[in-house]
Structure formats: C-alpha cells, structure tokens
Write a protein that binds this DNA or RNA. Structure first.
Length: 939
RNA sequence: GGGCGGUUAGCUCAGUUGGUAGAGCGUCGGCUUUACACGCCGAAUGUCGGGGGUUCGAGCCCCUCACCGCCCACCA
C-alpha cells in the first residue's frame, strides 16, 4: 500500500496496489457464510475490448457482489467470455484478407487455428480491463464458451433436445445472409425503412381475354413466380380466379389464386407469389400446394437454371443474359427486358422495410435451405410460466410484459450456422443421408453400423451452432453441468442477472428456457434490466459516429490528439475521419483528464436510474472525481486530528454533534441498503454523497474542529468522544461506500482501521454497515437543527450584507422560549466558531432594539445590529423580498383553509398542520413588517 | 399497425403509497476561515408539455391531444 496521505488524491497511485492485495488475499473466492449470492457475468466477446456499456454493467454487478460479500454471504461473481461466432470469424477473415489470404483457401482446420491464435493474442484483454475497473470476479473460475467443459455440455444439450424431439432438421425458408453465406435467426435480422420503388408489371391472361397488373418491390424474383394472388372477395377479379396468366419474359403459365393474405387496397390488389423467395409467399404456396422454385445461388446471384424444389413446372430455363447476375444487377436487366416487352406499366417511389444482417449489414435474402431448429413452443411455455408464477422477477417490472409478448409469438429457432468458428453440430450422415445425432463420433459409428448392418463411412455435419445456443446454457454450464457439482448445488439458481434490454430476447429468454428445461429450476431469481449508455448529446456511442468513449481513457486520461487518432483509426467509412477529428477537437480540446476508477464507477452508479436511456456526461465524472478528493481530504483531516499516541478507547462522552452525526450515519446506511436492495443505484449513490459531503464534511468536521482545537475547553472524555466519533463514522462510511469506490475506500480504510485498532486485512471482507435506527438521537437532532438554523441565519446576514468573514457579528436576541436560552448556553461555542458570532445580549420582550438585520428562528428573534456593519437599504430590500415570499405562501395556505370542504374531508392532522403553518407565517410576517417600518424610518 | 418509455430550474436528470417542488453541473456575489480552490460561505432560477376529469388537495391517479425516442409486426 502506498503510504503517505500527505499529497492530493492520485488514483493511479493506489489502484494497482489494491487490486494486487485483493488477489493475493484471494478475496474474490467464495468463502464463509450460510447464504449464497451469485451473479453470472454476461460473457463478453473473448477478443473484444471493454466499452462504456460493459463498464457500466460491470460496475453495477460489482456493487452488488461486493456488498453481498461484505454481508458475509458466500459470494461468487462468475466471469468468462464468449466465442462470438459470427463477429470473431468476420474479424479474423478480414485480417486474413488484409494479408491476401482467404478462408476457403486455408481450409477449415487451418482457419480455425488462425482464430485460436487470435483468441490467444487478444483474449485476455477484456478481463485485464475489468480488473482495472475493480471488478471482483473470481478469476480462477474464468470460463470460455468453447472450452472443453462447456463444449461437452453443449453437445449434451443438443443430443438430449434431439432425443426429446425438441431439435429437428428441416428444409424451409430462412433468413440468409448472402455475404456471410450463412443462415441467421430472426433476431439477427434488423429491418429498417429505406427508399425503394414499386414496379407495376402487366401479366397477360393465357386465354387472351385481358391482363392483370401486379405491384412488386422485387421484380428480380419474377422468374420464381408460381401464381398471382387476389383477395377472394375482391369484386374486380372475381371472374379471373382460376384462370391462368403468362409470366412476362419466359411466358411460363401460372394460375390466378384467391387468398385473403392479399390487401385489396394496396397497389392493384394483385400479388405475384414467389414461394421460395418471400416468407409470406411461402405460406401462400403451402396453402395452395404451389411449386417451390429457387432462382438464386447462395450468394444471391441468378442461377443458370431454375431449381425445382417441389412441385413441377415445364420449362426451367433462365434467359442467358440474366444468368449469374447479382440480384440487383439482374433486377436492372430484367426491368429493361420488361420495358422492351411493354410489360412494365408504372414505376413509383416507395419506402419499404429492408431486412439486413445485424453483423454484415447485407440485405437478407429469404432462402430455402436445410437447417437445424429448436422447437421452442414447449420451452417457451415453461419459461413463461416461471415468470408468471413469480419465480423470476423483472426489475423494472414493466419488462415482464415485453417478455410475455415475445414469448407468445416466438417461432422455432434456427440454430445452425454455416460458419467454422463455433460448436460443430454433433450430427453425422450416412451414405443415404440418414442422420445420427450422438455425443461422440464413436457412438455415431456404432449407431450407423447397427442401422445399416455394417460399418459405413459417416460424414459429420459441417455447420456450427448459433453463439446464443451456448450462451443460453451459461448459468449452469459454467458451474459444471451436466455434472452435479458442489458449485452447481451451491450457486444455482443464481441471484440476479444484470443486463441490458437489448438482449432480453437473444439471451435472457433463452437462458430461462434452457435453464428451466435442463435443471428444472430458473437460472436466476431476478433480472435487473438497465438502460443504454448514450453520449452527452443523447446519441448512441458508435465507432462510425466517432463519439465513443473508452472507459480506460476516463480512468487514466488521454490527450487530445491521441483521442482523435483513436477515434479516426480503422473506420469503416474513412471519409468520416475529418468530421470526427473536428468534433473531437472541439469537444475535447485538452483531451480527457485522469479521473480514476472510483470516480468513473461512482458516476455510473449515479446515472443508473430506471430510465431506458442514460446520458453520460463527463462533467458528472469530474464532479465525482471531486467527491473522491473530498473523501480523501476528509480522511486526511481525521487522521491528522488524532495524535499517534491518542487513546481512543478510554471513557468517552458524546456531545450533541457526535450524537447527531451517528444518527445521520444510521440513516445513510438505511438509505443505501434500501436503495441497493431495490436496484436503485442512483439513490444509493446520492445518499452516500449527501451524507459524506453535506453531513460529515460540511457540518460534522467543522463542528468537531471546535472541540478538537488546541485551546479546547472540553473535557478529556469529550475530546476522546469527538476523536473517536470522527474516525469511527469515517470508517463506517468507507465501508458503506466500498462497493461503489473500492480503491479509494480500501486505501483510506487501511489507515483509519489501524488507528482505530480494527482487525482485518482488507475492507472488502469487513462487515457491510447495517443501520441501527435506535441510535438516532431525537434530542441531538433537535439541537443540531436549531444550531444549523442559527448558523444559517447569521451566515445569511453576512453573505447578503457583504460582511467580511473575519469580522465577528454581535447579536441581540429577543423573544424565544426557554429552550432557546438553554440551547444558546450549551451550543454557543459552536455558534462562535461556525458563524463567528461575537457578543450576545438578550433584549427584553418589549424593548425597542437598535436598527438591526432580523432573522427569525421560530419564536426567537435574532438581531444583528446595523451600526457600522449593515447597509440599511440592502436589509430593507431583503426584508421586503422575504415578506413577499411569505405572503404568497400565506395566501395559498389561507385559501386552502378557507374552503369548508377541506376542513370537513382532509385528515385532522393535515388540517392542524396547515393551521400551525398559517399561524407561523402570520407571526413572521408581522415581525418582518414591523422591522421594515423601523428601518424605513432610518432611510 | 401493436406495444413500451419520455416531456419537471439554463443543461442533465431525481421525485415509491396524492398533502408546502429537489440534486449535480452551470450562473451571480463574497472568501488564502488551522482537510480539500478537485475548496468554503451566500444568492438567483420552475404556469412540473397542452386540455379535461377524479379529489378537500394532483408533478404523482383517469381520459384526451401534441411532440420526441425505442421495440415488435407479412401491405407485395
């Protein structure tokens, strides 16, 4: 540990030493306790780097984890990383391409070797960054979705689901990414409105009696048309249903069918039906037993010949000039042909939803392929039920509805991907295509031998599983499943899942389905759904916008040009670089100062409200860095006040300030605990901030100076009480703050605890404070409220009248109760030091005092004589303003009281309160008016 | 088309059973007061998006409108 506190707060100096201490002491290993607490880290991409969203989420998890650990629970925060199939494979492919190599030239095993190599190189990065954040994961248990144990579990799950008929293989339309050349799930497709056209194309009736016009946004699929559909009740086309049309270009004959999928109002009310290239048309095709004609290759080019997947047609020829053309080139060409033919009757601008792959951004093509699916119906039902039954609670609760809605409409999950990086599907094919799904190749061989009556050569399915398949198992596979390990027994179901709403469907729902199915228990009891971190302008942070902040830069600081370089390097659109450079130089002319981890963490906690979007403002971090500094200096002060040889454990007597601050501490403890329990991190942070800065520093430290100063007239027991309280309250506050600011609190605690003679190697394993509200002392609270109001009154006079702080204020008192006199006796020593109150004199009740500034403290009149001190005009104005304010309030209250219905219906205590208030206001107004008259005479 | 959020001080946002509107930042004035100028003291600032309703009483409950944002959805 760094030793000297004789310097300003310097986070960089303390952070690494603290983390070292925690790891050396094995602080993060589960230990002790009769109850358990467990959080699963949502596994980040193994080759990724920490972004603001991670840092935010990790901070919240760490707060929960550290508090639970300090509460003495056996606590595990399980870390690990995800192989992130598509993302990682794309990245490695891009790197290879930069070196002039291609995935397919390398071949599967050589390519995979390259990916593993990349994983080894960049794999530890994100966990090192998490350590910088202070994350208290048990790193000795770190897992990776592709490591041996987890892969084994994935196979086990696949095989079991297959045996139960919940996994099947089928040929149907999938979302096909023609760039990545793989199927993706519904969730990986993001549709957004884009500009396009609506083409109107004429199809002529084969009997020569006329024609129809169909409207389409995808003319290039025309070659795959198998029918034209109209609405069954559409009067315009009644007579045509059942007739046939001639497809433009090729002249193939197709029927006119009736299906109520067609919207009468849209376009011409006629829809071309292309079952192999459109999800709706597929349904229509199924209903009407139409052929399935595939016209595209896997990279979305026109085939050389139509592939008849089912049904039959006469001619499968494709015009030579279209063959091999990309879908957009073929669209252009085909439109030209239609134009020539005279079939293109109209072209309209049209906005439509374009589906794109969330990784590649390629336009997704509905494409007929063989894929593996999870039959989610039964799983979803069970997963809905556990939420309904309250076994899983969403926080905030309104996400429950989103969850239900999705679960009700969920479709089977396409889990196979035509990638190489991932868990290869444990399925083997016999020579005749028979499928053997087994745990190992040997088992498949046995099964095949039994099936065919002789050994055969099997071919393994080349596909891998969707990354989210293994992620769905994360809560139990990381704990050793399928083995019934002690960890699994101890920590499963886990306590809470902390996650963003963007992956409720991808991940949360699937974990619930799989967890419930395979363990018979929910994977977690609560789901805390947090908001999304946006930049200061409310924009989503993204590399392409150039507004990304790196959490590590906020901790260590970064100079302006380095930040510019970082933001403009490796852009997908290099032309943005100039704009980003300009904006960055404007927003961060001096770069970013080093705020330290604790300030960053505290900032994350303080913006963690229940909203959906959370703007991240650097000013806030700066403010919290100042808070860290405040704590640092307060601790320095406390330690400085207490001589090395001071005996803190002799007889102690507690003065009102001590009794008061102890009470405030209890209330702060209650607020913080209560807030964390409800996942109200911002409230918890606020309570801490408020207590430490406003109560402890602004008032208590200042009050203690009076007792602890060298010429103090307080007794030894009182001084000891004050010294002890100063340190003990600080020590408790450090423990209370530790989950939020682990580094700062650890460093200071080492020194404070030593001085207090407290045992323990680290604050991380001390007891988390629990409020004892019995210790809130009503009398002390009343004393301090009086004292603070008195000090406030004098400071207000001083501030508004511009009286130098060095100048003592003489005070005249008048009126008031016995308690005011009694308190003045006991508390004036603090009034003198905090407000620099000078001579005090009591005036007789009716006596006419000298011209003075007036402040009211209940029935007590506090007068600061004007002679030589006060500007009469200024005080006159101040009084007038104050009068106006009170008058306004009095009017409001009186109006309320004047209503008979208020007296009749409002609770008696509310009425009494209002009456007391109006009385008080009336008195005050009288006093002020009188005082103003007196001053008026002097002007 | 359906659903969910949001609209409160110059800015960013709190406001949990309906009972006298708050914080941080910023602004203005003063201050080398024996931890901290990353500080201290004082001050200013809101028709709580519009309209209607319930209620003795509404920022909070109900209805409605407007604007902003997000998610879901098969009008080719």
């Amino acid at each position: 540990m760094t030793d000297s506190l004789d310097r300003p707060f310097a986070p960089a100096e303390i952070e690494s030493a603290c983390y070292q201490l925690w790891e050396d002491q094995r602080v993060f290993h589960p230990q002790g306790g009769n109850s358990t607490y467990c959080i699963m880290l949502p596994p980040p991409n193994v080759t990724g780097t920490l972004h603001m969203g991670h840092a935010f989420q990790d901070t919240l998890m760490d707060i929960l984890t550290r508090r639970a650990r300090m509460q003495g629970k056996q606590t595990l925060w399980q870390p690990g990383t995800d192989h992130a199939g598509i993302a990682t494979q794309m990245l490695v492919e891009r790197r290879l391409e930069a070196q002039g190599e291609k995935r397919h030239q390398l071949g599967r095993s050589a390519f995979l070797e390259k990916v593993w190599q990349w994983k080894e190189e960049s794999g530890g990065h994100i966990s090192r960054q998490m350590r910088r954040l202070g994350a208290s994961c048990d790193w000795s248990r770190e897992r990776f979705t592709l490591d041996e144990g987890l892969s084994h579990a994935v196979t086990e799950v696949f095989v079991r689901l297959h045996e139960e008929g919940l996994i099947y293989r089928g040929k149907r339309l999938v979302n096909w990414d023609p760039v990545l050349q793989t199927a993706v799930s519904d969730l990986e497709v993001v549709s957004s409105e884009e500009g396009g056209k609506l083409w109107h194309i004429r199809y002529t009736l084969t009997d020569g009696s006329g024609s129809l016009v169909v409207a389409t946004t995808r003319p290039e699929t025309l070659l795959g048309d198998v029918a034209v559909a109209v609405h069954p009740e559409d009067e315009r086309y009644q007579a045509l249903i059942g007739k046939t049309l001639r497809l433009p270009i090729t002249g193939r004959e197709i029927p006119i069918i009736a299906d109520d999928y067609v919207e009468v109002e849209f376009g011409s009310g006629c829809v071309k039906i292309t079952p192999a290239h459109d999800f709706n048309d597929y349904q229509v095709g199924q209903r009407h037993h139409l052929p399935l004609l595939n016209i595209f290759t896997s990279d979305a080019r026109i085939r050389d010949e139509i592939e008849v997947v089912s049904g039959s047609i006469g001619d499968t020829q494709i015009p030579e000039e279209l063959r091999g053309l990309d879908r957009y080139a073929s669209r252009k060409r085909l439109l030209a042909l239609l134009e020539v033919e005279g079939s293109l009757v109209q072209t309209d601008e049209h906005r439509l939803m374009i589906p794109r792959g969330d990784r590649s951004q390629a336009v997704i093509e509905p494409y007929l392929t063989d894929q593996w699916y999870v039959r989610v119906g039964p799983l979803a039902e069970a997963a809905t039920e556990v939420v309904r039954a309250g076994k899983i609670r969403f926080v905030p609760e309104n996400w429950t509805r989103t969850y239900y809605d999705w679960m009700e409409r969920i479709e089977d999950w396409c889990i196979s991907r035509q990638l190489w990086w991932g868990h290869q599907i444990p399925a083997w094919y016999g020579p005749d295509g028979n499928i053997f799904v087994t745990r190992t190749e040997e088992e498949a061989q046995h099964a095949a031998a039994a099936h065919y009556g002789m050994p055969v050569v099997l071919e393994r399915d080349a596909d891998v599983l969707d990354t989210w398949f293994s992620s769905a198992l994360w809560p139990f596979t990381t704990l050793g499943w399928p083995e019934q390990t002690p960890d699994l027994r101890e920590f499963y179901p886990t306590s809470v899942l902390v996650t963003g709403f963007d992956i409720i469907f991808f991940w949360v729902a699937r974990m619930i389905m799989m967890g419930q199915h395979f363990t018979g228990q929910v994977p977690f009891r609560e789901v805390y759904v947090h908001g999304l971190i946006l930049d200061g302008e409310g924009q989503k942070m993204s590399k392409s916008k150039g507004n990304v902040l790196d959490p590590i830069d906020l901790i260590d600081g970064i100079d302006g040009e380095a930040l510019v370089a970082k933001r403009t390097q490796g852009l997908m659109q290099p032309q943005m670089a100039e704009k980003i450079t300009k904006a960055t130089r404007k927003d961060f002319p001096n770069g970013i100062p080093a705020f330290g981890t604790d300030a960053l963490r505290f900032s994350f906690a303080s913006i963690a409200t229940q909203g959906r979007d959370l703007r991240f403002d650097l000013k806030r971090v700066e403010g919290n860095r100042n808070f860290c500094n405040k704590i640092w200096n307060a601790a320095r002060f406390a330690l400085m006040q207490i001589p090395e040889d001071a005996d803190l454990h002799g007889a102690r007597e507690l003065l009102p300030p001590e009794r008061w601050i102890i009470g405030r501490l209890q209330e702060a403890e209650a607020s913080v605990n209560d807030a964390i329990e409800q996942y109200r991190f911002a409230d918890a942070a606020h309570a801490l901030y408020q207590f430490f800065w406003n109560d402890y520093c602004d008032w208590y430290i200042e009050l203690s100076k009076t007792v602890l100063r060298p010429e103090s007239s307080f007794s030894a027991a009182e001084i000891r009480g004050s010294r002890y309280t100063l340190l003990a309250v600080l020590e408790a506050a450090l423990r209370l703050a530790h989950p939020f600011m682990p580094f700062l609190t650890e460093t200071l605690w080492q020194r404070v605890a030593e001085r207090l003679g407290k045992e323990g190697k680290t604050i991380a394993l001390t007891a988390y404070p629990v409020a004892d509200l019995q210790r809130v002392d009503q009398e002390a609270d009343a004393d301090l409220a009086w004292l603070m109001a008195f000090v406030g009154a004098l400071r207000s006079v001083r501030g508004e009248m511009d009286i130098a702080p060095s100048r003592e204020l003489p005070v005249l008192l008048q009126g008031g109760k016995d308690s005011d006199r009694e308190r003045l006796e006991r508390l004036s020593v603090w009034l003198r030091s905090l407000a620099r109150m000078g001579e005090v004199e009591w005036l007789a009740a009716k006596a006419e005092g000298p011209p003075a500034a007036l402040q009211l403290l209940g029935e007590l009149r506090i007068l600061v004589p004007l002679a030589g001190l006060i500007d009469v005009d200024a005080e006159y104005q101040r009084l007038s303003k104050e009068e106006a304010r009170l008058q306004g309030e009095q009017d409001k209250v009186q109006k309320r009281l004047a209503q008979p219905s208020f007296r009749e219906r409002a609770p008696a205590e509310v009425v009494a309160k209002e009456e007391a208030r109006v009385q008080e206001l009336t008195n005050a107004l009288q006093e002020l008016a009188e005082q103003r008259r007196r001053l008026d005479a002097l002007r």
